[in-house]
Structure formats: structure tokens, C-alpha cells
């Protein structure tokens, strides 16, 4: 019984959901149990030989490797590099996407003229630019930034366009009739409407940016966790590789949680919870 009440209906207050009365665990505990079970499975599979320990070391050994890795300074440097590539890339993408979105969204001619170009450029897989990045920027941070920015700018831009389009015509007319300046209109009418969309765009971009940052390190070899994984793989340090993969997962969780928290914080005043604009 998982049906969620979507609208307040006329029926009585108690929720007509038949509770499971089996004395089941509360949900957070159940989730914890799930994690423990996963660790257990990862421990048992290689130990019993179902999966070769050469491919999948027992979880305890991965955990050991994780502790070992965490003791090395190079790991923290790699983590910092990854955070840098992600952070700068995301910041640039959000800046560019917001600016362009506001500009294109508010000027009808621009919106029409750019539509076909955006439709064409957006689906180009950013990794297609990998060889170009290598040629032009080598294996430095700039390569990572090129890929991250290209990939992360689209969600922000598209959400922003949808947000600006969503401005209530009545509000716009009201602002015009009170002779708001262009700036005041932007500040008090367009921006508040577009903000929820922007936050959705930022949340999507944040995880895309992380994926691209780590991918470019993995393929191009610019410094960061991705490069460390490639190194561990080529030197057949399997436990270490798994440990680093877990680190990237943890990073991903942090990014997702932080992005959602930010979204909630910024939109606390906003009555409606936005669904993602279908673009």
C-alpha cells in the first residue's frame, strides 16, 4: 500500500492506508539495515568464492584500503583537485546559464533565434569534446573545466528559460503599468518566478558536473580522484580502486544532499514545490 494522497479529498482525516501491523522496523532503521546487508553481501560473495576475490575483494579489505588511502596526502590532494574542478566548473556554468537564460528568455527575438541552435547543441555528448580538450589544454584543470562547463550549463540554461517563460502575464502587465524600470521588473517579477526553476537547474547541474569532472580525470588524466582510480586500475590495486569508487559515490551523495538542502533553503518561502520543467 504505497498510494500517496495527492489532493485533499473529502474523506475523513485518518488516512485510509492499511498499516502493516507486523511490528516492522521504522523506515530509517530499515534503510540502515539495507546498507549493512549490502556490506554483508559484498563480504560474503568473495569469501565463499561465488565471485573471485581478484575481481571483488571482501568488503572488509576494501574498508582497510579505504583507511589506508585516507592516510595518504595524495588522496586528499586528489579530492581537493576534484572539488576544485567541480566547484569552478559548476560556478561558471551556473553564472553563464543564468545570465544567458535571463537574457534570451526576456527577449522574444533572441528566444526564437536561438531555439534551433540550442536544440542542436544540447544533445551533443560533452565527452565528444575530450580530444579537443586534450589538444588545446593538455591534462590540466582547464580540460576538466571545459567538459564540466559544457555539460553543466544546459540544465541551468534550459530551466532558466522555462522559468522566465513562466512569469505570470498579469504580474508582468502590472509591473509595466506601474512603470517599473527594466531592472525592477527583472528583480521583482522575473527573478522570483524563475528562482525555483533555477534551483532545479543547479541541482541537476551539480551532479552532472561531478560526473564530468571525474570522467575527465579518468580519461584525460587531469589530477583528481578519477585519475587515482585509473592509476589503481592500471597497477592492479583492486582494493584501492574499490575504495576510491566508494569515495566517488560518497562525494556524489554529498553533492546531491547539499544541492537538495540548498534548494529547500532558498525556496523555503515558495509555496509550491516545483516539478522539473519538461523540456
Amino acid at each position: 500500500m504505497t498510494l500517496q494522497p495527492r489532493r485533499a479529498g473529502p474523506p475523513p482525516a485518518p488516512h485510509p492506508r492499511s498499516r502493516t501491523r507486523t511490528g516492522a522496523l521504522p523506515e530509517p532503521l530499515l534503510g540502515l539495515l539495507g546498507l549493512v546487508l549490502l556490506a554483508g553481501v559484498l563480504e560474503v560473495l568473495p569469501r565463499t568464492g561465488v565471485v573471485s576475490a581478484d575481481y571483488l575483494p571482501p568488503f572488509s579489505e576494501i574498508a582497510d584500503a579505504l583507511v589506508g588511502v585516507a592516510g595518504e596526502e595524495s588522496f586528499w590532494q586528489a579530492l581537493l583537485d576534484t572539488a576544485e574542478g567541480w566547484g569552478y566548473g559548476l560556478a561558471i556554468a551556473v553564472g553563464v546559464g543564468t545570465g544567458l537564460g535571463l537574457l534570451i528568455g526576456s527577449v522574444e527575438v533572441l528566444r526564437r533565434a536561438t531555439a534551433s541552435t540550442i536544440e542542436f547543441l544540447r544533445p551533443i555528448p560533452s565527452v565528444a569534446l575530450v580530444p579537443l580538450a586534450v589538444l588545446v589544454y593538455g591534462t590540466g584543470l582547464e580540460s576538466t573545466l571545459l567538459l564540466v562547463v559544457y555539460a553543466a550549463v544546459w540544465p541551468v540554461l534550459l530551466q532558466m528559460l522555462a522559468g522566465v517563460r513562466d512569469v505570470d502575464p498579469v504580474a508582468r502587465d502590472t509591473a509595466a503599468s506601474y512603470r517599473f524600470t527594466r531592472w525592477a521588473r527583472l528583480r521583482h517579477v522575473t527573478w522570483p518566478t524563475a528562482l525555483p526553476y533555477l534551483m532545479t537547474g543547479v541541482r541537476l547541474s551539480a551532479s552532472v558536473a561531478l560526473i564530468l569532472a571525474i570522467s575527465s580525470q579518468l580519461i584525460i588524466g587531469s589530477p583528481g580522484i578519477g585519475k587515482e582510480i585509473a592509476l589503481a586500475q592500471s597497477s592492479n590495486a583492486v582494493e584501492e580502486m574499490y575504495a576510491l569508487v566508494i569515495v566517488t559515490g560518497a562525494l556524489g551523495v554529498c553533492v546531491n544532499v547539499a544541492a537538495r538542502a540548498l534548494e529547500r533553503r532558498v525556496l523555503a518561502w515558495h509555496t509550491s514545490v516545483r516539478t522539473e520543467a519538461v523540456t
Binding site: 482525516a13 485518518p14 498499516r19
Partner: peptide
């Protein structure tokens, strides 16, 4: 009777 979390309601 509904058994909710922490309260029961006789409808």
C-alpha cells in the same frame, strides 16, 4: 477502525 502511527481512529 484505522490504526495510524500513534493513534487509532474509530471511523
Amino acid at each position: 477502525t484505522y490504526y495510524g502511527s500513534g493513534r487509532t481512529v474509530e471511523a
